[in-house]
C-alpha cells in the first residue's frame, strides 16, 4: 500500500487544485463583500457550458474559454446588481436567500437551454505524464498550473494595483474606506468580475476533465465553503492551502480506508478545525467590538 503513497498524494493534489480553483473566487467575494455567493457554483457551471457550446461550434478551446470568462464576468456583475445590491442593507438572511435564488434561477435556465444530460468538453490537451513514481494527466497538470497562475494573478491585483488597494481597504474596514472616498461601486464591480472570472476559468478547465451538467456547481461550492473555513475566510493562501489539504485528505481516506468515507473524512476535519481553530489555518481571529 505504501508504494502507492506518492500516486495517491499526486491524486490528492490534483483533486485539491480543483477545489482551490473554485474556492478562490468564492473567498474573494465573501472576504471583501461578505456575500455568501452560492451562485458562484453557477458561474463555474456557465463557464463550462459556454466553453462547451463554443468548442462544439468549432472554436479553439482557449479562445472559447476566454470568451466564456468574459461573458461570465458580465453575468457576475449583473447578478450582483439584481440579486445582491438591492438587499445590501437587509439582514444577512435576506442575502443568503437571494444568493440561493440566483443560484436556482441560473441552474434552471441552463437546464432549459442545454438539458440535464451530462457531457464533457473535448479536452485541448490529452494524454498522461508517466514517471517511475506516479501518473498524472496533462489536463490535471494544467489545472494545477492554472491554480498557481490564478492565485498569483489575484495577489498581484490586490497588492500591486490601486484597485487592489481599494478592495483590501473595503475588506478591512468598509466604513473607513467609504470615508476615504473609495468608490464602493468600483470595488463591488471589480470584486464580482474577478470572482466570476475565477469561477468561469475553473468551470472551463474542469469541464474538460469532468462531466458538466446544470447542477454541477452545487457540490464544488459546498466543498469551496469547507475550503474557506479550513483556510480562513478571505485568505487567498488559505483558499489554496485549504483546497489542496481537503483534496489530499479525501484521497487518502478513499485510498487507504474506504471510498465511502471520503466525504465523512472531509467534513470531520471541518468540524475539528471549527472547534480547534475557528478562524482557519490562515485566518486571523477577530474581536467583535
Amino acid at each position: 500500500m505504501i508504494d502507492l503513497f506518492v500516486q495517491q498524494l499526486v491524486n490528492g493534489l490534483a483533486l485539491g487544485s480543483t477545489y482551490a480553483l473554485v474556492a478562490l473566487g468564492l473567498t474573494l467575494i465573501f472576504g471583501v463583500l461578505l456575500i455568501p455567493n452560492f451562485a458562484h457554483g453557477e458561474f463555474y457551471m456557465l463557464g463550462a457550458f459556454l466553453t462547451y457550446a463554443m468548442v462544439l461550434a468549432g472554436m479553439n478551446f482557449w479562445l472559447a474559454m476566454a470568451l466564456a470568462v468574459g461573458a461570465v464576468i458580465l453575468l457576475g456583475c449583473l447578478v450582483d446588481r439584481l440579486a445582491f445590491k438591492p438587499v445590501e442593507q437587509a439582514p444577512p438572511l435576506s442575502m443568503m436567500i437571494s444568493a440561493l435564488a440566483a443560484s436556482i434561477i441560473l441552474q434552471q435556465s441552463a437546464m432549459l437551454i442545454w438539458g440535464g444530460e451530462a457531457r464533457t468538453i473535448p479536452a485541448p490537451v490529452t494524454g498522461v505524464l508517466r514517471t517511475p513514481f506516479f501518473i498524472v494527466t496533462w489536463m490535471q497538470l494544467i489545472v494545477m498550473a492554472s491554480l498557481l497562475l490564478a492565485a498569483a494573478g489575484v495577489w498581484l491585483v490586490l497588492n500591486r494595483l490601486r484597485l487592489g488597494l481599494a478592495i483590501r481597504a473595503v475588506a478591512q474596514n468598509r466604513d473607513a474606506a467609504l470615508l476615504m472616498g473609495i468608490s464602493m461601486f468600483q470595488v463591488r464591480l471589480a470584486t464580482f468580475a474577478i470572482g466570476a472570472a475565477l469561477g468561469a476559468i475553473a468551470g472551463a478547465l474542469l469541464g474538460a476533465t469532468f462531466p458538466i451538467y446544470p447542477t454541477m456547481g452545487v457540490n464544488p461550492v459546498l466543498k469551496a465553503f469547507v475550503v474557506l473555513v479550513l483556510g480562513g475566510i478571505g485568505s487567498l493562501p488559505g483558499a489554496v492551502f485549504g483546497g489542496l489539504f481537503l483534496g489530499v485528505v479525501e484521497v487518502m481516506v478513499a485510498g487507504y480506508i474506504s471510498s465511502e468515507l471520503s466525504d465523512i473524512g472531509a467534513f470531520a476535519i471541518l468540524v475539528a478545525v471549527l472547534l480547534l481553530r475557528p478562524q482557519g489555518f490562515f485566518g486571523q481571529a477577530q474581536v467583535e467590538r
Partner: peptide, 20 residues
C-alpha cells in the same frame, strides 16, 4: 467492492487501488 455516488467526478484514489 467499491462504491461511488451519482455526480462524483474524481475516482483516482479508488482506481489507483484497483490498478494496483
Amino acid at each position: 467492492e467499491e462504491g461511488y455516488k451519482l455526480g462524483d467526478t474524481d475516482f483516482s484514489a479508488t482506481l489507483t487501488r484497483v490498478a494496483s
